[in-house]
Computed example of a mutant assay.
Amino acid sequence: MKKSLVTLALTTVLGAASFASQAANIDVSITNATKGIYFTPLLVVAHSSDIHLFQAGTAASAEVKSMAEGGDISGLSSVAANAGAVVSEDPAGGILNPGDSATATLDTGSADRLSITAMLLPTNDGFVGLDSWTIPSTPGTYTIRLNGYDAGTEANDELKGSMPQPPFITFGENGTGVETSITNSKIHIHPGNLGDNDPAGGKSDLDSSAHRWLNPVAVVTVTVK
């Protein structure tokens, strides 16, 4: 159901010459900063400066689409690994609940950029993202606040039939749909869920008191050792 730009596989053999000169061991702690939004399994990747898991303003690749619409990070992980990136899959061991944190430890080797992705639940094609952040060469602790992105691959109708339905999320029903068509087909900042307070009708099958959110959606702490 999704598509996102992965210059990973398209950007040639990532030669060692394009990497930063020094290696670093880093801890990457991701905190879900929302009230009622869940993160699907996270993908944390250290890579060279000439690749991207996704980029705002571009069409989503098939791998990004799969992550943003269904939480499937396997395609993005494979593309990244095949491009020579250092990959950490699912450091939370599953869903990252609101308020919870997960930490990935990476030996970055010659990689000098950091990217992170995971689907936001419940959304149609929303995901939390960090695109090619420069890993500092100076040891220390660095904090980044992450926005939610819209993959642009699916209309944000907010209907339960259009998104995964895990048992820990209570959906309404009989919504007529917030959107009926895609208004921006490129990756862009997500406007957040609208929701409503009618569990048996209205426009949305999402509860505005629990599932409405604004950016940022995550806080990342990177410790460079």
Rank of each mutant, 00 (worst) to 15 (best):
M163T: 00
A218I: 15
G36S: 08
A20D: 02
T141C: 04
G140P: 14
T117F: 10
I135S: 02
G201R: 06
T176P: 09
E154G: 13
L120H: 09
T7D: 05
T170P: 15
A104D: 07
G15I: 00
V217G: 03
L76Y: 12
G195H: 06
P191C: 01
D198N: 15
P122F: 07
A104Y: 12
A68S: 13
T223K: 15
N97D: 09
S181Q: 15
F39V: 08
R145E: 13
T141I: 02
S185G: 04
Q55N: 05
I135C: 05
L159W: 12
L130F: 11
L14E: 11
P164Y: 07
T105V: 14
S115D: 11
T153K: 09
Q165D: 07
A80F: 15
T108I: 06
Q165M: 10
A60R: 14
G15S: 04
G99A: 07
N184E: 07
A16E: 09
G148L: 02
A85D: 11
S162C: 06
H211W: 06
K203H: 05
A20L: 01
A60E: 10
G15Y: 01
A102N: 11
T141M: 08
S49R: 00
R113P: 03
T153N: 11
T170S: 13
E89V: 11
F171R: 00
P191H: 00
G126P: 15
A200R: 03
A20H: 01
L5M: 08
I73C: 09
G36D: 05
F39E: 07
A80R: 11
I144K: 02
D107H: 05
S88G: 03
V86N: 00
P139E: 06
A151I: 11
I189R: 06
Y149K: 07
G140N: 03
K160C: 03
A60L: 11
N197Y: 02
D107A: 06
L76K: 05
H52L: 10
N197S: 12
G148H: 09
V222A: 01
G152Q: 01
D196F: 02
I95H: 08
A200G: 09
S4K: 09
G109K: 06
A17K: 04
V45G: 01
P167Y: 04
I135R: 00
G75D: 03
G126R: 03
S74K: 06
H188Y: 06
T223Y: 04
T105L: 05
L43P: 15
I95T: 13
G57V: 15
A56Y: 14
A23E: 03
G201E: 07
P136T: 03
I187E: 10
D100T: 08
A59S: 10
T12A: 04
N25T: 15
L146D: 10
T141F: 14
E154C: 12
A62L: 14
D125H: 11
T58D: 04
Y38S: 05
K160T: 00
T134L: 04
G109E: 07
Y142H: 06
L194M: 06
G175F: 01
A111H: 00
D27Q: 12
P216C: 09
S29Q: 12
